[in-house]
Design a protein around this nucleic acid. Structure first.
Lengths: 244, 244
DNA sequence: CAAACATTGTCTAAATTTGAGACAATAATA
DNA sequence: TATTATTGTCTCAAATTTAGACAATGTTTG
């Protein structure tokens, strides 16, 4: 049950007309996914949003929202763009968003919510299996969607995801170290699959290995015996030196 | 004389706790410069800031502020980062900023101004000679500063300029940085100086020329006879197709 | 008026990086 | 022991970048 009083109190401690939206990417089965939450009673989805408390840095607010929705702390999280069309969001979206409480109160009666919002977008890349999704207030449930097969998205969230993805692709090389996305140890092939999924293109095995090894960011560990009828690949892990 | 009433009315039409800051770059005498404005009675400078009107897209607001301060329209302007430390700005800065009117009203009595501000940073590239600087309200005058010799900056504006410059350096290759920074026509050597200044490194003359010409973005015009005792260089201008 | 001078435009060879194929090495299975 | 699938690495070709060289050309100087 949604506690209306708590919502309104929370809003009072927050900065009006300004929100944060986190585009949370996850990786599984060679698919790049994004964590979306569904509005009640309608097939409309959104990325993980929230507000900025008055005493909180915006980076802290983004980290808090990420933690609230995934349970993950200390994850690499990067701002990518602020969205501020004069007509976002439409009151229609808000009415849907607060439908579950709208029998008790009309959205229009909460001034905080009926105004125009400017939203600062952050993105993160997480180990999907470590996430226990908790939808934000007024959302029904959360789900991972393949980036190729997104559902109907509210507001400008399609554009947001698009832009977050572009930013992620642009910064794969340095971002992968920061996001502790890979398990502690992994094979070169597993790392390559991640690259290919993010970039949406295949890469040649030999040259990928050369490129990554030349970066000098990995240490080679013992071999991994998978039981497959073939040569066993080495395991690697990221070096523990001077990184983020 | 500053019209206090006009200021306060303007603020009423603006979104609270949210501002825009434009880092405006220009190029002259082989120096990359940034347009700063000085506070009255104190040696403290700031980039070109302003507020967002309630009915205005944030991109429009940035373009308006750019035009107000430079007289230039339709110029390259791109968002690069939102700044939102919980303690920005300090009330001290504001008191200085509004000193010129503070004999008539205490800053503290304008609630709009005493709150925390989150600022969205844009950067722009302009032809310095076409600019007629007009300082923002509450500022004394505007001046171009070599990026290497910045004066004392208020708030987090040093960090802002730093980050804008980094963004500019990253985008050198895909953005036509010369298009707005250079005069209508220019020599290859002048363009090279611009690149060298932005990137902070020297480049070889022959290879720079090849690289730029291969981009196929310039048209070659007649030669420029400088009076120097040597071969006259060609003049170029940017082609008039599908650009900013 | 020819020689000297400074700088420009372009060419070429060397060095480096990238792309693509080849092949031996090696776990597990038949 | 031969077969199979995959890995790690090598090599060669192609593409790109770097560096050097040199002729061309306005202007000044003798």
């Amino acid at each position: 049950m949604i506690d209306l009083q708590k919502i309104i109190e929370g809003l009072k401690e927050s900065i009006p007309q300004l929100s944060i939206d986190c585009v949370i990417f996850g990786f599984q089965n060679q698919e790049l996914k994004v964590l979306l939450s569904k509005l009640p009673d309608i097939d409309l989805w959104a990325v993980q949003g929230g507000f900025i408390r008055k005493t909180e840095d915006i980076d802290q607010a983004a980290a808090r929202i990420l933690e609230e929705r995934t349970g993950l702390k200390g994850i690499f999280l990067e701002q990518f763009h602020a969205f501020g069309k004069a007509n976002r969001p439409s009151i229609d979206f808000l009415r849907e968003a607060f439908k579950s409480i709208s029998d008790r109160v009309a959205v229009e009666s909460i001034p905080f919510l009926t105004q125009r919002f400017i939203s600062i977008g952050y993105y993160s890349l997480v180990d999907l299996l470590r996430v226990e999704p908790v939808p934000g207030i007024s959302y029904e449930r959360s789900e991972w969607f393949d980036i190729q097969k997104l559902p109907k998205l509210g507001l400008d969230h399609a554009e947001m995801i698009e832009k977050a993805l572009k930013t992620l692709q642009y910064s794969v090389d340095y971002a992968l170290i920061g996001f502790n996305l890979m398990p502690e140890t992994f094979t070169m092939n597993e790392l390559q699959k991640l690259y290919e999924t993010i970039l949406g293109e295949t890469m040649s095995r030999n040259n990928f290995q050369r490129k990554i090894l030349d970066m000098n960011i990995l240490e080679r560990l013992e071999k991994k015996f998978t039981g497959g009828a073939h040569k066993a690949p080495y395991l690697y892990r990221f070096k523990r030196l001077n990184q983020y």
